[in-house]
């Protein structure tokens, strides 16, 4: 495709390619277990490192920190936590997986759940002035089971709670 000439600038040609590439990404058994509990029971499950006893979010075959195999020990996580860090996108960005722009604004936070596990997720609160570190939040799930099955995305967002 040719781009129209500006004054005194030579004409330049561009070649465009716009075909989306398709993928079949697997959760594997570890993330799969988390998906299943979220979809069926609206519960957050993670596996536990046998050495440091921390819950692995994302669930994995090896604990990155301890560099040991985790085995298959699962625990349910609490669904309430505290915002450690947050931000919100002001500039709308392109989502390569959906081929459209993200919602805007989109508050995004690292939330320390009540057992110490840290989860990254979106916040319901979009008013910049009401966001602060230390605010208490809880998970809000997608209502219909058929809408769930996308792991952490089965949680719509975290909403502000009093305590």
């Amino acid at each position: 495709m040719a781009e129209k000439k500006k004054k005194s600038e030579p004409e330049y040609i561009f070649v465009e390619f716009n075909t989306p590439r398709k993928y079949r990404w697997s959760t594997g058994p570890y993330v799969g277990k988390m998906y299943h509990e979220a979809r069926m029971n609206k519960k957050l499950y993670a596996n536990q490192c046998p050495k440091c006893k921390k819950m692995l979010w994302e669930p994995q075959v090896v604990c990155g920190r301890c560099k040991v195999e985790t085995g298959w020990k699962w625990k349910e996580l609490p669904q309430r936590g505290t915002v450690m860090q947050y931000t919100f996108i002001v500039y709308p960005m392109w989502d390569p997986h959906y081929g459209e722009k993200f919602a805007n604004p989109l508050p995004n936070a690292m939330i320390e759940m009540d057992d110490g596990t840290v989860i990254r997720h979106f916040l319901e609160e979009t008013d910049e002035k009401k966001l602060k570190e230390g605010m208490r939040v809880e998970a809000v799930w997608k209502e219909n089971e058929e809408d769930r099955g996308e792991g952490t995305a089965d949680i719509k967002f975290f909403r502000t709670i009093d305590k």
Partner: peptide
């Protein structure tokens, strides 16, 4: 943003 797959980390999509 595609440094996460839809499988995990969509909550970290802010690049």
């Amino acid at each position: 943003t595609a440094a996460t797959t839809p499988v995990w980390g969509k909550g970290a999509v802010t690049g």
